[in-house]
Structure formats: structure tokens, C-alpha cells
Amino acid sequence: MSIKDAVQPVLRDARATVLPDPADHHGPLPPLMLALTVVTGLVDAFSYLVLGHVFVANMTGNVVFSGFAIAGAAGFSLAASLAALAAFGVGALLGGRIGHRARAHRGRVLRLALVVETVLFLAAYGVARYGAPLDTAGPRYSLIALLGVAMGVQNATARALAVPDLTTTVLTLTITGMASDSRAAGGAGGKTGRRALSVLAMFAGALIGAFAVRDGAPTLPLLLATVLLAGSTLDAFALARSDARWTEPR
């Protein structure tokens, strides 16, 4: 197989993810899931680099960080990791309730969840931008709580929408699928383009967030994430009025 023959299916899959067919099983959801994946990269860059070795979206990291903190490793806070885990759990519970309440229409699930998430991000940006210094306990734990709940809502919503390979927060299985389903591994190589876009979306968010923090604008990742969420929420209001096949629960 030539390089061209190998690359073309990947590009077609990526194109179909960014510009999906309205008649597809998931309709317009894939590009919105990619936008939310960028949000994850931005917010975890902010939380890890500004709030001090804690994630608000990647809970696997917080479980590991809790072990580091208990072992006495420098720079890790057990209280911060547990606070993030608790906030994320509350958000996932809230997201689950949203998903069950509007489960008959996936567009309405997305709309409700994004409204809640956007409000939480706006509150977090207000705390970060206009509150006390971020290295003090009050603002730090307020931000962990607000952002953790928001990302729990997002994760539960992505689970309810069930768009394959676009979980918005977890890439371990995505990367595993890229390798284990590849032609080199004896698989069909399906969805490689979509999976690669998911990885790149989170990478882009993290890269932009890290550059912003490094160059002296620590609240910029939150502002960018909030703008992305606000735009996605506007789209979701239009999608909530659709009666296309993709709105049916999966």
C-alpha cells in the first residue's frame, strides 16, 4: 500500500469529523466535541500551571497526585487533589441528571449541559481575574471547585452523547485505539483521523494555555475556554430545535 492510499482514508475521516454529514448518526456533534476537547486542554493547563499540580479535568492524574502527596513528594497537595476529585464527582452527578432529564433529545442534553458549564466558567474567570491573588487558599480552592464541577458536567455529557472517540477529556483509550486498530496491528484502521483530531485538539488547548501562562497572562486560558464554551452554547440552542435522526438517544 502506498503512502497516499494510507493517508487518504485518514484525511477523509478527519474531514467528516470537522464537516460532518447532517444525515450521519451523530450529525453536527463531532466538531462540538472537538471544541470541548480544546477547552479541556486550556483548563488543565491553567489548573496545573497556575493552581499548583492539580487537574480539574483529568481525574486519573489527581488519583496519582494523591499518592505522590501521601508519599511526601514535593509540590503536590492531597487536599487540592481530593477537592478536585470531589468537585468533579459533583459535576458528573449533575451532568448525569441533565442527561437523564433530556435523554430523549441529544441536542437538548448538550444545550442544558453547556449552559451550566459556561456559567461555571464565567464565575471561575471572575474569581481568577478580579479576586484575590491565585496563590491564596480561597481563590485556589474556589477555582478548583468551580472548574471541577464544570468538567464533571462536560464528561458526563460526553458520555451521554456517546460520540465515538470524542470523550473530550480522556485520551488513553483514543491513543490505544489508534494503535491497536491500525493496519500495522492487523486492524481495519478505522476512525484514525477522528482520533488524531481529538489528540491534536487537546494538545492545542494545552499548548496555547501553557504559552499564555508562561507569557504572563494566567487568566487567558480561562477566558479562551469561556469564549469557546459560549460559542458552543449558541450552537447548542439551535441544535436543540432539530428533529433530525442524530438527536435520538444512543
Score class of each variant (00 low, 15 high):
31 P>I: 05
243 D>M: 03
174 T>G: 10
154 Q>A: 08
236 A>I: 04
151 M>H: 02
59 M>R: 03
250 R>D: 13
85 L>E: 04
143 L>I: 01
40 T>H: 09
37 T>D: 08
212 A>E: 13
32 L>E: 07
230 A>F: 13
102 A>G: 02
127 V>W: 01
26 H>K: 07
199 V>Q: 08
24 D>N: 08
102 A>F: 15
126 G>W: 00
226 T>C: 03
183 R>L: 13
14 A>G: 04
84 A>Y: 01
236 A>R: 01
149 V>K: 01
32 L>Y: 08
49 L>C: 02
73 A>Y: 13
65 F>D: 10
58 N>K: 08
34 L>W: 09
203 F>P: 05
81 S>K: 02
96 G>Q: 13
117 E>Y: 08
143 L>V: 00
148 G>Q: 03
161 L>Q: 09
18 V>T: 08
139 P>F: 00
162 A>P: 09
184 A>K: 12
72 G>L: 04
138 G>I: 11
64 V>C: 03
75 G>L: 06
157 T>S: 13
247 T>V: 15
85 L>T: 10
101 R>D: 04
178 M>L: 15
18 V>K: 08
190 G>S: 12
192 T>M: 15
249 P>F: 12
108 R>C: 02
172 T>Q: 04
69 A>I: 02
62 N>I: 05
17 T>C: 12
15 R>S: 11
25 H>C: 03
135 D>E: 14
136 T>G: 03
61 G>D: 06
117 E>N: 11
195 R>T: 07
123 A>S: 02
231 G>Y: 03
240 A>W: 00
110 L>E: 08
202 M>V: 12
157 T>D: 09
202 M>T: 09
203 F>L: 15
33 M>L: 15
145 A>R: 00
247 T>M: 10
88 F>L: 03
122 L>F: 00
173 L>E: 05
197 L>Y: 09
241 R>Q: 11
81 S>D: 11
60 T>S: 15
10 V>N: 08
109 V>R: 07
194 R>T: 15
175 I>A: 13
6 A>F: 10
136 T>N: 02
110 L>F: 13
1 M>L: 10
76 F>D: 08
79 A>L: 14
152 G>L: 06
165 D>T: 07
167 T>H: 09
191 K>E: 11
242 S>E: 11
10 V>E: 08
38 V>Y: 09
231 G>T: 09
223 L>G: 05
87 A>W: 03
124 A>H: 00
155 N>S: 14
29 L>G: 11
158 A>Y: 11
121 F>S: 01
237 F>S: 04
163 V>S: 10
106 R>C: 05
164 P>V: 06
227 V>N: 01
12 R>A: 13
168 T>R: 08
190 G>H: 12
75 G>H: 05
201 A>T: 10
133 P>M: 10
17 T>Q: 06
88 F>G: 05
119 V>Q: 02
32 L>S: 12
231 G>E: 09
211 F>I: 12
27 G>P: 08
197 L>P: 06
191 K>L: 12
181 D>C: 04
189 G>Q: 12
120 L>V: 00
155 N>M: 06
203 F>T: 14
195 R>F: 04
57 A>N: 12
132 A>E: 15
1 M>Y: 07
33 M>Q: 14
33 M>G: 14
17 T>S: 10
87 A>C: 01
186 G>V: 11
247 T>A: 07
103 R>M: 05
97 R>F: 14
66 S>I: 04
159 R>Q: 14
122 L>A: 08
135 D>R: 13
106 R>K: 15
174 T>V: 15
102 A>T: 10
20 P>R: 12
222 L>T: 00
133 P>R: 04
